[in-house]
Design a protein around this nucleic acid. Structure first.
Lengths: 405, 405
DNA sequence: CCGCTAAATTCGGCGAGTGAATGAAGGGTC
DNA sequence: GACCCTTCATTCACTCGCCGAATTTAGCGG
């Protein structure tokens, strides 16, 4: 199916497919591209020539000869374009500038009052200098990751944690800064990063689970991010655990987050006397690091809880891998045992050895890089969403593209 | 992405898209097709003409004039092709023959010994006469739904319930009967039916949950069936509920199935004295129908358990709808309250009013129809899996197609 | 009868993709 | 070093899908 919303851009479907293959599967020869995509060598030559002339890809190396003429390995030119990625959190923005190949160029951070009368105006002013900064490579656009959900059709943001309802963040910023803007759930942006540049590169079906202040998930299936019917997929933190459990900010009781969010863990540690009344997540980690059994047990139990939930997801979704990320992985040494044990114990048995688990060491800028990846992956996908076309057009406008005219 | 395995058949991507649109969204005008797919009217005229000449679609009606020339509504010709669908269960086969538009032509059923030395030989002999039966429309192929999981690449079947491991059912049958054969998990086949002909027609993102001897699920996301990385997606029955729970035939303890399968419900009813020691599912239903509070409570609790699990899935996957089906829905009047209450109570709050719940009244032949739908949907999808190309080729060979040559 | 509107068709042209032949660049063999 | 073999890459003539613009068809209302 997939047909319904497919845009008019069916012409260069192969151009995108070739670029995606080069982008995701590293340096690769034309012959290999032709084989993998089922295209004729002639077509691959034509497509790659146009991409080379546009400066988007280049020959990086000679392959080792396989008994004949050695292959020329092609890879994307990171400097062909760049994007800005921003993670929006309550009180603070974290931003990056990244190359087309995901290379981190520059990071920035600033306080942000999401409760202001016009938070978008402040956001726009904050980003404007970065947009205006000269660079020899074109700015493809700005990606934003927000802790909430986004209707990718309308671009409206629902972010209870920020107090935002029906906020037209995408279109507003795009108009003000005159740059393509993409907005998505922050965990989805992270998954976009993992898929394109990170641990998810080898997979077409994987799960990303994030631990921290909240608990999140993103589903990549069939090589595409699954946002669900209303853009609200992945709300793992609000999985019902116990209808009589602690109240959750979402309005329910006993959501997973009320048991394993950073705040919940600290609370549990306080109750067993593992940390003092004013302790924070770092104190809890320190307690566990120094061998406090109560603190360690809090982590183990939390890991087990998430592991069990993950096992359920794996059983239903059958991914090739589960990636764990987020600030919470700072305490991974304490969480790992509970998580892995519960995951393996709860997975549908035949899958136990078939699903890989990777932990992505947490990094402040990775979420923002993910937001940038949201933009940087646009040239590599066939989506015909509003701003992705504009992004592709900006890449095509790279010097060299018009020279061919 | 999606690129990697995309076959060489990119030429007629629009032909497939048009056919899919006509097939799934009922009688529709050319102008409407052009608008929805973003194609030019000229292209739609050309594509539909070729489909009409091939006998696959036809004009069925005039639309009501919108102020101009009235539209011609196009629909698929059911008699253009047919397929055989078979549900394979322990001890029994249920089969159907169905038209391209999902019309049920004929049903058959036969005992089947899946533990025989060569069960495929027996299966082949059973199906041979139905394959040989003359029909003016071409037989596109045979679809089989099996209670287990299937690697769609290799076609190997893992079906613990049947005692099958690494069984090359697809290729074996295909070779013996000289007909394209598709094999999939039985719940997936049901979802294929729902998506193409049933309650799932309006949706591109929905969940199918089946209740009965086992508990199953199928995920349709982005308009495609999601089979997971190893073809094992949807094993809802083996969701871990309680690691200390009753033993499950899968080798774990406390899987969902051990609480809410038909057998488990009867067992629970026996324990509370709601039914006698030799009672079966029908007796339990009868007890509940006649108002026995113990029996009703067994159903309510089971419904609630499944509802909670469904709520979790909805929270993570955000479908547009949840379809409930399977033999277990015979007792839906007793299950409904527990299920719906728990589902609504456990769903991520903003989704509560956005997700529709439909119950598909259980019907012996529906699963088999689903298996047929697996074949019948092949012309409507872009998958380049082994046998789907052969199926499309058979449809194209319909009288009229070669006349145009 | 004449405009108005929307659906459908025709037609010339463009451009992506292909197959087949050709050229390029290594390794191996004697 | 001449020769063959293999694999990668390119060129070229050709096909075919798709498009834009113009045209025809078919109902409605005044």
């Amino acid at each position: 199916m997939t047909a319904a919303t497919s845009g008019p851009r069916l012409r260069d479907v192969n151009r995108v497919a070739v670029l995606a293959l080069i982008g995701r599967h590293g340096p690769i020869s034309r012959a290999d591209i032709a084989r993998r995509l089922g295209l004729s060598p002639a077509t691959v030559t034509a497509v790659t020539r146009s991409l080379i002339e546009a400066g988007v890809i280049r020959k990086v190396d000679d392959g080792i000869p396989q008994g004949g003429r050695p292959a020329e390995l092609l890879a994307v030119v990171g400097r062909a374009a760049h994007a800005i990625g921003v993670k929006v959190a309550a009180g603070r923005l974290t931003g990056v500038r990244a190359d087309l190949d995901g290379t981190l160029l520059h990071t920035f951070s600033a306080p942000f009052d999401e409760t202001a009368v016009n938070p978008f105006g402040a956001l726009s002013e904050l980003l404007a200098p970065h947009v205006a900064a000269v660079d020899d490579a074109p700015l493809l656009g700005i990606g934003l990751g927000v802790p909430g959900f986004v209707d990718s059709r309308t671009g409206l943001v629902e972010a209870p944690l920020l107090g935002w309802r029906h906020m037209p963040l995408r279109d507003y910023l795009s108009q003000l800064l005159d740059v393509p803007v993409l907005v998505d759930n922050d965990v989805n942006t992270l998954a976009a990063y993992e898929h394109l540049y990170g641990l998810g590169r080898p997979y077409e079906d994987f799960l990303t689970i994030t631990l921290g202040q909240g608990i999140g998930a993103a589903v990549v299936s069939g090589g595409d991010l699954r946002r669900g019917g209303h853009g609200a997929a992945g709300e793992l933190g609000h999985l019902p655990i116990d209808p009589a459990g602690p109240p959750c900010h979402c309005g329910r009781r006993g959501c997973l987050e009320t048991y394993v969010s950073d705040g919940a863990l600290v609370q549990q540690a306080r109750e067993v006397g593992a940390v003092g009344p004013d302790a924070g997540p770092a104190d809890l980690r320190a307690a566990a690091d120094s061998g406090h059994p109560g603190a360690q047990e809090v982590y183990r139990a939390a890991g087990a809880r998430v592991g069990t939930v993950a096992a359920g997801l794996v059983t239903v979704l059958d991914p090739q891998a589960v990636l764990v990320s987020g600030e919470g992985t700072l305490a991974w040494t304490h969480l790992a045992d509970g998580f892995v044990t519960a995951l393996r114990a709860g997975m549908f048995l035949p899958l136990v050895d078939a699903v890989n688990v990777h932990v992505d060491p947490w990094d402040d800028t990775k979420w923002a890089l993910g937001a940038a990846a949201l933009v940087l992956r646009a040239p590599f996908t066939m989506n015909a969403e509003p701003h992705t076309d504009a992004i592709r057009a900006r890449l095509a406008a790279f010097p060299g593209a018009e020279v061919t005219q």
